[in-house]
């Protein structure tokens, strides 16, 4: 059911994109959608283990056995690392598109003198 909360957050972001008139608020709405998806991806890696799951990092300690390879205990308790890699990638992509979006907003403000999209309407038809 937590997943549907993620979807709710996603929808709040979508609502923000569709309804708000301010360019910056639209950008915030897109970011909300992005974070909802990231949260969803991280939650996909969740797993229930009796003594508690561990982060998927084999940094030493009892998680490595004598031969220096990953122990069975670690494998049985670590959470799924793949969604975390996905989230990292999507954060990087989000950073790139955020920078571009903010740059476009600033440039538009320079040209039009406003962030209100109802007043930025030169293209019609």
């Amino acid at each position: 059911m937590l997943y549907s909360l993620c979807f709710l957050l996603f929808m709040i972001g979508l609502y923000c994109v569709l309804v708000k008139k301010n360019m910056i608020k639209i950008v915030v709405g897109i970011l909300l959608m992005e974070y909802a998806v990231n949260l969803f991806l991280v939650m996909l890696g969740w797993r229930k283990v009796a003594d508690g799951a561990v982060a998927p990092i084999a940094a030493g300690g009892d998680l490595l056995d004598k031969a220096g390879t990953v122990s069975q205990l670690f494998v049985s308790r670590a959470v799924d690392p793949l969604p975390q890699a996905l989230v990292l990638t999507s954060i990087v992509i989000g950073l790139g598109s955020l920078a571009l979006m903010v740059a476009i907003c600033i440039r538009t403000y320079e040209k039009y003198g406003t962030f209100d999209i109802t007043r930025i309407r030169r293209l019609k038809g």
Binding site: I26, I30, E34, I104, C105, R107, L123
Partner: peptide, 13 residues
């Protein structure tokens, strides 16, 4: 710029 913003918002969605 106006077109790019519109395109970018819908593209990101």
């Amino acid at each position: 710029l106006e077109a790019a913003f519109k395109y970018m918002v819908l593209g990101s969605v």
